[in-house]
Write a protein that binds this DNA or RNA. Structure first.
Length: 422
DNA sequence: TCTGGGGTCCTAGGACCC
DNA sequence: TCTGGGGTCCTAGGACCC
C-alpha cells in the first residue's frame, strides 16, 4: 500500500501562510521572470484565472478580482518543503520525496496497527498544525492509484482531504468518474489518442488490454494500465536516484542582443551548475550551452542552438566549466538576434575527477582545485560574504524580473515576520 | 512589451562491427 | 545480376512529470 500526500496549491499556500490578512482573497504565484501563472489558490481558481496563462493576458482579470500576485520565492517554498518533509518523516515509516510538495509513503505494515484512512487524517492534521499548510492524502495499492485517490481527495471536499482506495469496488467506482487525462502518466497527447480509440475514462483505460496499449503506445503506458488494475509496477525508491544531468537556465528580464551580456549570463549559469555538481559530489565531462530567441516574437526569425564540449578529464572546477561553456557560446553566437533565454547543461557524470589518461596526453589536473572550490562554497554557505567570477559581471542587467517578491520569511533574519501584541 | 525551469524515460534510426 | 543476419552504441526527438 502507498499513500501520496501533497500540499494543496503549494506555492500559493506558502504565501498565504505568512499573510493572514489575505484570507479569502484570490492568490496567484508567477513563474520566474513574472512570466506565467504557476500556482493559484481556491479563490483564484473560482475567479477563473487559468493555470499556465501568460501574466499579461490575465493581468486585467487579476485587477478586477483584487488578486494578490506574487513572484516565485523559491527560498521560501524550498524551506517550507523541507519542514513538511521532515514532519512526514517523523510520523511515517518510509517516505519518498517525489517533488517539492509531494511525497509517497510506503504503508507496508501500517494497516496492521491502524485504519489507513485514520492515518491519513493524522498526517493532514499534523502538517496543518505545524506549518499551516493543508495536505491531501490518497491511499491505494499502487502509486498510480494513490495518485488518483489524491486527485479525488482534492476534487471532492466531502472527502475532507483523505481518500482510501484499498477496496477494488471503490477503485472502479472512482475510475469511472475520472477522465483518462487525469491519470498519472497520461498527458495531453496520449489522452487525445486514447479518446480517438474510445477510451475516455480511467476505468476504460484500466480495462484495456495491456498488450494492445503496448503495441499502440509504449511500455510506459502499459505499466500505467497494470498499475490502475492494482498490479504494482513502480517500486518504492530506497534511495534518491543519482542525477544524470544538471541544467541551469533562465529567461532574461529583457531581450539580450549584446554578446557581452549573453556571456555574463552564460558564466553565471555555469557557476550555478558547477555548484550543483559539487553538491551532488559529482564530476562531469560533458558541458553544453544553449541560447534561443522567443518562439512567440512576430516578424522575427527564430534562432536557437546548442553546442557542447567533451572534456578529457572529468571536472567539478567552476573555472573549467566556465571555460567550456563560453567556448560553446562562441560556437553558437549569432549577431543580430534578440535572445530570450540561455542556459548551461552538464552531463556524463563520474564519481571522481581522475580518468585514465593516454600515455602521451599533456593534460594535467589543476593544482589546488578542490581547496579553492571548497573555499568558495564555504563562503557562500556561511552567507558572510560574496565572491564571484569576473565573467559573471557586476550589474547583471540581463537578470530576471521579480517585481512582486515576498520576503524570505523563514531564511533571512532581517526579513522574519514581526508580530505585534495589542 | 510581456509566454518558467528542471528533470526523467523510452524509442527509432543511423553508424558501425563481425 | 545477385546485395545477410545479428548485434551494440549513440543521439535526437517525443512524451511525460511537477
Amino acid at each position: 500500500m502507498f499513500a501520496l500526500a501533497d500540499v494543496n496549491s503549494f506555492y500559493a499556500s506558502c504565501e498565504a501562510a505568512f499573510r493572514p490578512d489575505l484570507k479569502g482573497r484570490p492568490i496567484v504565484v508567477l513563474s520566474n521572470n513574472d512570466g506565467c501563472v504557476i500556482a493559484r489558490n481556491k479563490e483564484a481558481k473560482v475567479a477563473g484565472i487559468q493555470m499556465g496563462a501568460p501574466f499579461f493576458k490575465v493581468r486585467q482579470a487579476c485587477e478586477q478580482h483584487k488578486v494578490a500576485i506574487f513572484s516565485s520565492n523559491y527560498a521560501l517554498y524550498g524551506d517550507m518543503s523541507y519542514r513538511v518533509m521532515t514532519l512526514l518523516e517523523e510520523i511515517c515509516p518510509k517516505v519518498e520525496i517525489y517533488s517539492i510538495d509531494e511525497a509517497f509513503i510506503d504503508l507496508q505494515g501500517v494497516s496492521n496497527c491502524k485504519n489507513l484512512e485514520t492515518f491519513g487524517h493524522e498526517i493532514r492534521d499534523k502538517i496543518d498544525k505545524c506549518t499551516g499548510l493543508k495536505m491531501g492524502v490518497g491511499i491505494g495499492p499502487t502509486k498510480t492509484l494513490a495518485k488518483l485517490a489524491n486527485h479525488a481527495a482534492k476534487k471532492w471536499s466531502k472527502t475532507e482531504g483523505v481518500v482510501d482506495l484499498s477496496l477494488l469496488a471503490r477503485q472502479r467506482k472512482l475510475m469511472a468518474l475520472i477522465e483518462v487525462g487525469e491519470v498519472w502518466g497520461v498527458g495531453r497527447r496520449i489522452s487525445k489518442r486514447l479518446n480517438a480509440m474510445g477510451i475516455n475514462t480511467a476505468l476504460q483505460l484500466a480495462d484495456a488490454s495491456p498488450a494492445l496499449i503496448r503495441k499502440h503506445f509504449s511500455v510506459v503506458l502499459e505499466r500505467t494500465v497494470r498499475e490502475l488494475r492494482g498490479e504494482p509496477c513502480l517500486e518504492p525508491e530506497e534511495l534518491a536516484p543519482t542525477k544524470q544531468q544538471i541544467i541551469c537556465s533562465r529567461s532574461f528580464g529583457d531581450r539580450v542582443s549584446q554578446y557581452s551580456l549573453m556571456r555574463e549570463a552564460i558564466c553565471s549559469h555555469a557557476v550555478r551548475a558547477a555548484e550543483k555538481l559539487r553538491k551532488e559530489n559529482r564530476y562531469c565531462r560533458h558541458i553544453s550551452a544553449f541560447a534561443k530567441t522567443s518562439p512567440f516574437a512576430d516578424g522575427e526569425d527564430y534562432y536557437g542552438n546548442c553546442c557542447s564540449i567533451q572534456l578529457q578529464i572529468p571536472t567539478q572546477d567552476t573555472r573549467d566549466i566556465i571555460a567550456a561553456a563560453t567556448k560553446c557560446l562562441d560556437d553558437l553566437w549569432k549577431e543580430g538576434h534578440r535572445f530570450q533565454k540561455c542556459g548551461v547543461m552538464l552531463g556524463d557524470f563520474y564519481s571522481q575527477g581522475v580518468a585514465q589518461l593516454g600515455l602521451f596526453d599533456e593534460i594535467k589536473p589543476r593544482a589546488n582545485s578542490e581547496q579553492l572550490m571548497a573555499a568558495i562554497d564555504l563562503i557562500h554557505k556561511d552567507g558572510k560574504g560574496r565572491v564571484w567570477f569576473a565573467g559573471q559581471g557586476v550589474e547583471r542587467s540581463w537578470e530576471m524580473k521579480r517585481e512582486m517578491l515576498s520576503p524570505a520569511y523563514t531564511t533571512r533574519v532581517n526579513e522574519i515576520m514581526k508580530v505585534r501584541m495589542i
